[in-house]
């Protein structure tokens, strides 16, 4: 698995973050972040809560503004220009901890809203695409239900399908399984693994270390707004370098 994964990574750069800094008021939440992600790479970001890992990936699609440094996505330099932000958001899909499906729309409408209004796809075509991805996440039979009628795991899979309908080249996952029951975590992770096997560039903030071992080709550990350590999963888990990483791993793997 790890070997096939390696082979899919290309030299092409998908995301390049250079000396990025971010403050919330006086609070320095991200410090000198440097990160290069190649196309096809699957990166797992972990770290204690408040370490800035969610903020980091939210900066990539401009849900948060950074104050210093630069972010480049697919060759487009992120600025505060609306057209620029539109372009980057159309390349980057995102899944959230609390799914954030639109409760007033059906599953199918959730998946076709952005393709119709942003991509200007005809409705019929958008619905075909949506059904294709809903089949992929294995819930085509729920297409005409509302989000409130689905379980948490199903909702998160819909959220993944909704993002995929925009045909993104990069997917960001912000703790996609943290709000789920243990039995539902697996169905969401299976979907994500399938996505990884197809060569999607992925950045996942997650505490699912099994997922990290199986899918990631790089694991990043963050603490206090800094990237403390990054390595291939095997090396990262078996031979962590910094004491902070060792402590973190002993805490989350200890039970």
């Amino acid at each position: 698995m790890a070997e096939t994964a390696q082979m899919q990574v290309s030299d092409e750069v998908a995301i390049r973050i250079n000396n990025m800094n971010k403050w919330y008021g006086a609070f320095h939440v991200l410090r000198d972040i440097n990160l290069t992600v190649h196309r096809g790479e699957r990166i797992v970001i972990c770290g204690p809560s408040g370490s800035g890992k969610s903020t980091l990936i939210r900066c990539i699609n401009a849900l948060e503004e950074h104050q210093k440094g630069s972010i480049e996505v697919d060759g487009t330099l992120l600025s505060s220009d609306l057209k620029n932000i539109d372009k980057i958001r159309s390349e980057v899909g995102m899944c959230f901890q609390h799914f954030n499906l639109f409760p007033h729309l059906t599953i199918l409408e959730n998946c076709t809203l952005a393709p119709i209004w942003v991509r200007k796809t005809p409705k019929k075509e958008a619905e075909e695409t949506a059904m294709h991805f809903l089949e992929k996440v294995k819930i085509p039979d729920q297409a005409n239900k509302y989000p409130g009628q689905l379980s948490g795991g199903q909702q998160q899979r819909v959220a993944i399908a909704r993002s995929l309908c925009m045909r993104p080249r990069i997917m960001l996952f912000d703790e996609p399984t943290s709000a789920l029951d243990p039995e539902m975590i697996k169905e969401v992770l299976d979907t994500m693994i399938e996505l990884a096997e197809e060569g999607m560039t992925m950045l996942c903030v997650t505490h699912e270390m099994g997922f990290a071992r199986q899918v990631a080709n790089r694991v990043i550990f963050m603490d206090e707004g800094q990237i403390v350590e990054q390595n291939e999963p095997e090396a990262f888990f078996n031979n962590p370098q910094s004491p902070r990483t060792q402590l973190f791993l002993s805490q989350i793997l200890g039970h």
């Binding site: 849900l63 958001r89 639109f102 952005a114 209004w117």
Partner: peptide
């Protein structure tokens, strides 16, 4: 919730459309 606006923004919708559609 803010999450609704964020999810819509992440899908590429502009703020006027987010207001009207979501």
């Amino acid at each position: 919730s803010r999450g609704q606006t964020e999810a819509a923004a992440a899908l590429g919708l502009r703020s006027g459309r987010i207001m009207n559609l979501v």
